[in-house]
Simulated assay, not measured.
Amino acid sequence: MPMVSIRPWMPSTNGPDFERTVAQAGTRGWTPLSGDAALAPVDDVKAFRGWQAGEDLRNGSVRPRTWKVGVARQEAKRLRKVVDLGGDPLGDIEAAREKAADERKRSKTVNDLIDRFKEEHLPGLRPATRKFYGCAFTNHIAPAIGKKRVQDVERGDVEKLFKKLTGLGQRHQANQCIVITGVLFRYAVDWGWRTGENPARNIDKNHGSGRERYLLPAESRSLAKALEALEDRQAAAILKVLLLTGARVGETCQMRWEQLDFARAIWTKPASVTKQKRDHRLPLTAPVLEVLAKIKQEQSPKSEWVFPGRSKEGYRNDMRSAWAAALKAAEIQKLRMSPSPGETWTVGQSRPVR
């Protein structure tokens, strides 16, 4: 029976030798000479493929590759010399694999970074935040730096986007894009996609002075009259609650009956909808209670939402057209449903300055 002895590519040079064997049926293979009777012969083709790849031939997981016996002997001799001289063939292979893996990470683009963030982290954010992040990715960040490698993005690239948005008058969006870009690159560092400083770090943001918008008594009466005449009665009710409570649009649209205590005239806004991320109890005035009581009387008791709508969440969230119609009827120019950052406004004496 012809025999040949080789040493596999393993971290330790004390691994088992292999013996060339031929079974009675004529099948050829390689059997580990470890004295372990449980080790079955390994197929001839699989043995040399696994030996070349540095795999443990005893686990049966190697893939086939054809080697001629003479070539295998020569390669075994060469590797034995490398090991005897202090070389580490398996270590070299692992180092090459690690280098290739690092190169794959370094080749990731900002678009890849955005995609992974959307998949792993965006679902955990609030609906309004998810929408805002999505708009920032699609409209600003991806068009500006999406095709650049994560490792190649510099501070100047982020500053260029910031200055562009600021120049267009989108000061708040410019600030938020800096924040979101910083979040993205913080994850890039954690994932090993980037080394070095975060390119969005310490970029000075826009600091605008507060702007106040007051509705004059005549404007307040005109707006109230416009709401009474508004064809969309649900929208009119939502806008009345907004104006009378000072609540934000999202908080009002997501109002549930279980949050209202009519006996104590309290609306408990849960932390999931408030900007401060904590429960907020808001006293309700008689006019607000009157609006809500009328809705409750006319609405189906099965609805959990005070203002149900066609959104996938179940509440109404499309108020822009109704607000624009009310402002047009009241002949009022440029007034937001809720104050933007740095802006406050009141409706007569009913809406507190925020």
Rank of each mutant, 00 (worst) to 15 (best):
G146A: 07
A144C: 11
E228G: 05
I93A: 14
T252W: 08
D232Y: 02
R354P: 03
A47G: 02
E94R: 15
N139Y: 08
L165D: 01
K118E: 15
P217G: 07
F307D: 12
T13R: 15
V22F: 05
R80E: 15
Q333C: 04
E251F: 01
Q299D: 04
L161R: 00
Y187E: 13
P2G: 06
Q349F: 03
Y214E: 04
V82D: 13
K81W: 07
V22Y: 05
F185C: 02
F117L: 04
L57E: 04
P339A: 14
Y214M: 09
P301L: 10
V249A: 03
G309L: 00
E103M: 05
G342T: 01
V183D: 05
R351D: 05
R316Y: 11
A144I: 09
P16Q: 00
G70E: 13
T166H: 08
F137K: 01
M3G: 04
S350N: 08
F117P: 06
L122N: 13
A37S: 10
L292S: 08
D261R: 05
I238S: 12
K302M: 09
R278P: 02
K105E: 13
G86C: 02
I93L: 15
K68F: 10
G87K: 12
W305K: 12
V82F: 10
A237S: 15
L79S: 00
I178D: 03
R351H: 10
D157M: 05
Y214K: 04
P301T: 11
L79Q: 01
R63C: 02
R130I: 02
D112V: 01
W191P: 03
P270M: 06
A330W: 10
P41S: 02
A23T: 12
D112Q: 03
T31M: 15
A142F: 06
I6M: 08
T346E: 03
L335R: 14
E290D: 13
R336A: 15
R49Q: 10
G167N: 03
H121W: 01
G169F: 10
A329T: 03
W51K: 09
R256H: 11
T181F: 09
